[in-house]
Amino acid sequence: MEKIPILKMGDFLLVTVQVDLYDRLALGLESDLVNMIRKYSSRGVLIDISAVNIVDSFMGRILGNIAQMSKILDAHTVVVGMQPAVAITLIELGLPMTGVHTALNVEKGMAMLRDKLFLTEETPNDSDNN
């Protein structure tokens, strides 16, 4: 069965969706990601959807689910690289995905995850030493 690969990079998990999603593929990604977060105690998840042409209500919901589930497991999720046409369509569809953090590209998404991690673990001493 087709699967979307998940890369582990230190504290983060990296997913680049290179094919158009269909329901079973998206569901598989959801469970794989949750299992990986648990296994590696990951602190952040970055999902790059720049190659995805269509996000409908089901796939939008999966992305929202992933964000919520990883939150429960103490990991932040950032969705990056959404195409303009996809963003406009999601809004028209009525799915503003308010619970999901977004960033323009992988670079900005990684910076966002690092920021979040840094902020949650920040103590006065730490910030002085760094």
Binding site: P84, A87, P96, M97, T102, L104
Partner: peptide
């Protein structure tokens, strides 16, 4: 409101 929401989806 829609334009703002779409901009946020893009990460801006």
């Amino acid at each position: 409101i829609k334009t703002v929401a779409a901009t946020r989806l893009m990460g801006a």
